[in-house]
Design a protein around this nucleic acid. Structure first.
Length: 504
RNA sequence: GCGGUGUUAGCUCAGCUGGUAGAGCACCGGACUUUUAAUCCGAUGGUCGCGAGUUCGAUCCUCGCACACCGUACCA
């Protein structure tokens, strides 16, 4: 492009107008967005190296450093100034004195610097020293404005606290809130920690389709979309389960996938329409093994990220160090409510009646298992603060799980609850193709009688099982919720970089 | 979906039984060569979320709408 455009400075905040006009002056002097400065150092590295150095020793060493980052604080005292620069590691102070930076080629540099704004991105180079108050500082001999910032940052002391702005403009939140940066650094650490853990246990990381012709592997309402070239309906996946089990059929005995699931359901403090799950499958294991394994994976992550198996969540401690409790659904109901006894809970009419009283109704053909589950959710779920496995789920709510060898009404299935919410769900996989076909048919019937979340019949999955799925255990861990626990975040939106919001 | 609460300067927040708004920081001008949320002096900045109604007069009362947060429902 040839001519510099006139900026539109109508209808804007006075601060933005002021900054645009400063940018115009910068453009007039030459390249406004120079890209030739290369920092050699980062703030925290310098602190690590020299914070403990005595002032005089540091003088003798004569260390030269160069850094780049955003100017977060600025204190001009006439012919010398201090500025605080923030880079990816943290912050470091600059000492900028007129007589040290002005030169024959650039006699006005200091007066330009005085006009630079908080939020501008700078590069600076100079000797590392300590001030009279012993703060590690770079005595700047070269300084350059790399990126002019047009928009003012939130206030330097109170920062940004408006939830909506934090979510909608995460970039601003990340600039000014160290807590937010820390949460997402931890999230990244959790992801890589889980990968390390899985790889150390000989799991193979795989990727399976996000676009499914038949949504399966969970009971949930899917997002629907359309593929133009194939002219077919497709669904964003609600779970990778059926594909991962096909891979175990294929001979990949241990696989895992960390990726998004999409469910077209409500939003809440623990629900986002797309969320991250790790699902893993291990041939020749069963649900007791899965529970041990899941437990040690979570313990590993907590220790890696927090440095301890004890985590503070919303003012209360969660201890991942001790062995996780195991309760059956009925035991859990009895533990947290004295309104029932064990015989009552095995009686369909009783449980149904108990739920009716709570104003909770289920579709007509729901059986004892479904009612027990609903009652468990009403009475016990929210109380399960310490990590607890609820085991032996009813078969009617577990269409993909292997039935118990001794009790055909229950499955070898568990869900893990921590801080009153579900974190993981696993079971010994149903590997009897004929049984699976029957269970799919029951799901289809439920769907036809109005259960929107019931599963579809997946004929290719049945075909895969007919080739033979080894006895296998499989489990899914809700990563966002795990991150919430480890980062002490009250809302799932706090652990998603860009949570979904209505259009502004 | 439903219910509650909220929306005032760029940011963080005051305020008003209805008489058209304030502070701190930021920004602008000035002083200041080791500051630490620098300090000191001075100035600027707002269709009080949007629309309608009541009223002589609405940021404030009423209704509607938008968005957010919390709870609840569905769900992980």
């Amino acid at each position: 492009m040839s001519e510099k455009k006139e900026p539109e400075i109508q209808d804007e905040n006075a601060i933005i107008m002021e900054r645009r006009s400063k940018l115009q002056e910068i453009r007039a002097r030459g390249v406004a967005f120079p890209n030739h400065f290369r920092p050699a150092d980062y703030s925290q590295d310098l602190h690590d190296l020299y914070d403990n150095e005595i002032k005089e020793n540091l003088e003798k060493k004569g260390v030269i450093a160069s850094i780049a980052g955003r100017m977060m604080l600025k204190r001009v005292m006439g012919k010398a100034s201090f500025a605080t620069i923030q880079d990816k590691q943290g912050k470091i102070q600059l000492y900028v004195a007129r007589d040290l930076i002005n030169s024959e080629t650039n006699p006005e540099l200091y007066s330009h610097f005085k006009k630079w704004d908080l939020g501008d991105i700078l590069g600076a180079k100079g000797r590392v020293f300590k001030t009279n108050t012993n703060e590690l500082t770079i005595e700047v001999t070269e300084i350059i404005l790399l990126t002019k910032s047009i928009r003012p940052l939130p206030e330097k002391f109170h920062g940004l606290s408006d939830q909506e702005t934090k979510y909608r403009q995460r970039y601003v939140d990340l600039i000014v809130n160290e807590d937010t940066r820390d949460t997402f650094l931890k999230r990244s650490k959790i992801m890589s920690g889980i990968r390390t853990f899985m790889q150390e246990h000989e799991f193979l990381e795989v990727e399976t389709p996000m676009l499914h012709p038949i949504p399966g592997g969970a009971t949930a309402r899917p997002f629907k979309t359309h593929h133009n070239a194939l002219d077919m309906e497709m669904y964003l996946r609600i779970a990778p389960e059926l594909y991962l089990k096909r891979l175990v059929v294929g001979g990949f005995d241990r696989v895992f996938e960390i990726n998004r699931n999409f469910r077209n359901e409500g939003l809440s403090v623990r629900h986002n329409p797309e969320f991250t799950m790790m699902e893993f499958y291990a041939a020749y294991t069963e649900y007791n093994w899965l529970m041990e394994f899941t437990e040690s994976c979570i313990r590993y992550v907590a220790e890696l990220v927090v440095g301890s198996t004890k985590v503070n969540y919303q003012g209360k401690e969660i201890d991942f160090g001790k062995s996780f409790d195991r309760l059956t659904m009925v035991e859990a109901i009895l533990k947290y409510s004295d309104k029932y006894n064990e015989t009552d809970l095995l009686d369909l009419d009783f449980v149904k009646n108990a739920l009716d009283k709570k104003g909770h109704t289920l579709p007509g053909k729901a059986g004892l298992g479904a009612y027990q589950l609903a009652l468990f959710e009403e009475e016990a779920e929210e109380h399960l603060w310490d990590p607890t496995y609820i085991i032996d789920y009813p078969i009617e709510v577990s269409p993909l799980a292997r039935a118990s060898d001794t009790n055909p009404d229950i499955t070898e299935r568990f869900e893990l609850f921590i801080a009153g919410r579900e974190i993981a769900n696993g079971f010994s996989e149903l590997n009897d193709a004929e049984d699976q076909a029957v269970r799919f048919k029951a799901q289809v019937e439920a769907k036809e009688s109005g259960d929107e979340e019931a599963m579809y019949y997946d004929a290719d999955f049945i075909r895969a099982l007919e080739y033979g799925l080894p006895p296998t255990g499989g489990c899914g861990i809700g990563i966002d919720r795990l991150v919430m626990l480890v980062t002490d975040s009250p809302s799932i939106r706090d652990v998603l970089l860009f949570p979904h919001m209505r259009a502004e």
